[in-house]
Computed example of a mutant assay.
Amino acid sequence: MKSVGVVTPFWLDRPPAEALSIAVAADEAGFGRLWIGEMATFDAFALATAIGARTSDISLTVGPLAAGVRSPVALALGLSTVVACTGRRAGLALGASSPLIVSSWHGRPFTPVGSVRAAVRDARALLDGNRVDGFRLRQPVPGTSISVAAFGPALMRVAAAEGDEVVLNLVSVDQVAHVVETLSELTPVPPPIAVWIPAALEPGAQTLRQLRSQLAVYLAPPGYGEMFTALGHGPLVERARAGEPRASLAADIPTALLEAVGAIGSASAIADRVSAYFEAGASHVGLVPATAEDPAGARLLTTLSPLLTKGHL
């Protein structure tokens, strides 16, 4: 079944607490699922608990979190706390993240494939109520859905084998179709695919600047750079990998690249774009609302909700 949700973004040019306002706007607009990630502002489980206290019905997916940062016990305790304190449906999403976040920020070894596989297996066992290494949750959450963020062949194999869902961020429609094909080759019953895409309703100059600034962060990392190169933007990737500052890179990102990995324009254009991701094989689309000229994404979410959540796609 196809669905559209909302992602709490962490725009570098916006107040951190806007994440709470976005959650409320998404809930009030009738979206059924909210993704709660983690960067340099809030602990994701604490934020999810706060969101649960301020919203009424929207289900929560915490992550993708860096699998190598928290132990499986910490992951299970966090998710159990969210469910127990909010009474809300909640899922967990895990990914490899990056050496900067895992090793530099948190001082943990960066072993992407092994850490993701172990975290998914052990967190699932703990949430189901099983004992792992002598520990058992007092408040298990059996049947918790665990999504896996995958970019690259090795993590795609982990996602196919261990995940209940594969999460893709900032991808083109063609890339989704490629992932569908890859997953079908890896397993007889591929997990569904969730896609995160930036979304902006009739964006002005400030919004386009916000989108460009955030996308510039992803030009250099492996996987993303290759995809942007395949889309015809190899020179930008080369400049990013050579160490050029993000601000100058952002200034040169063309609108065509924003359109290739997002949904911007009129309400009908955004709805058509979401439909294109579904047609390529996605089961869920998470909208990352641009907020530079639309605080909390309220106008975007209110306008799009009737088109995206009421069976009109």
Rank of each mutant, 00 (worst) to 15 (best):
A149D: 00
S3H: 05
A260M: 07
A199P: 02
V173D: 09
P198S: 11
P222W: 12
A19W: 04
G114R: 15
E181K: 14
P140N: 03
G78V: 10
A161W: 05
P109G: 12
R136M: 13
L201F: 03
T182P: 01
S266A: 13
S266R: 10
M156F: 04
I270Q: 03
K2Q: 15
D13S: 10
V217G: 00
G265L: 13
W196Y: 06
A125K: 09
F151Q: 11
E259D: 01
A216S: 15
P72Y: 08
V166Y: 07
T187D: 05
I101V: 15
D13Q: 00
R124K: 05
E38H: 13
E226L: 02
A150L: 02
P153N: 01
L301R: 03
P153W: 04
L92C: 10
L258A: 06
M39F: 14
Q214C: 01
N169H: 15
Y277H: 00
D43I: 10
V7I: 08
I22E: 11
V113E: 07
A256L: 12
D27N: 09
V120D: 01
K2T: 13
E165N: 14
G152C: 03
V83K: 04
A53P: 08
T207G: 05
G297S: 01
A251G: 08
S104V: 14
A154Q: 02
I146A: 04
G265P: 02
L94M: 07
P191S: 10
A269S: 04
H178N: 04
S275H: 13
L231F: 07
R241V: 11
E259V: 03
S21Y: 06
V24S: 14
A25I: 05
F135N: 04
E279K: 14
L77I: 13
S305D: 00
T291R: 08
V82W: 15
E181S: 13
R89C: 03
L60M: 12
M156H: 08
E185Y: 07
F42E: 06
L100S: 13
L94R: 12
A93L: 15
T291H: 12
L34M: 14
I197S: 01
L168F: 02
T8S: 12
P222N: 04
L308V: 05
A44L: 06
S248D: 06
D122R: 10
G114N: 14
G107Q: 10
G225E: 08
D57H: 14
T86K: 09
A256E: 15
L231N: 09
V261I: 12
R131E: 15
S104P: 08
A260H: 03
L211D: 05
P295A: 02
V4H: 09
E28M: 12
V217D: 02
A298C: 03
D27S: 11
S145V: 15
I253W: 05
T55C: 11
L34K: 11
Q214D: 08
K2F: 10
V69Q: 13
A242T: 07
V4W: 06
V285E: 07
E259A: 06
T302W: 02
A194H: 06
A23H: 06
L75I: 07
T41D: 00
T207N: 10
S98I: 11
T55R: 07
W35Q: 01
D133T: 09
L257N: 03
L168M: 14
D174Y: 10
P72R: 00
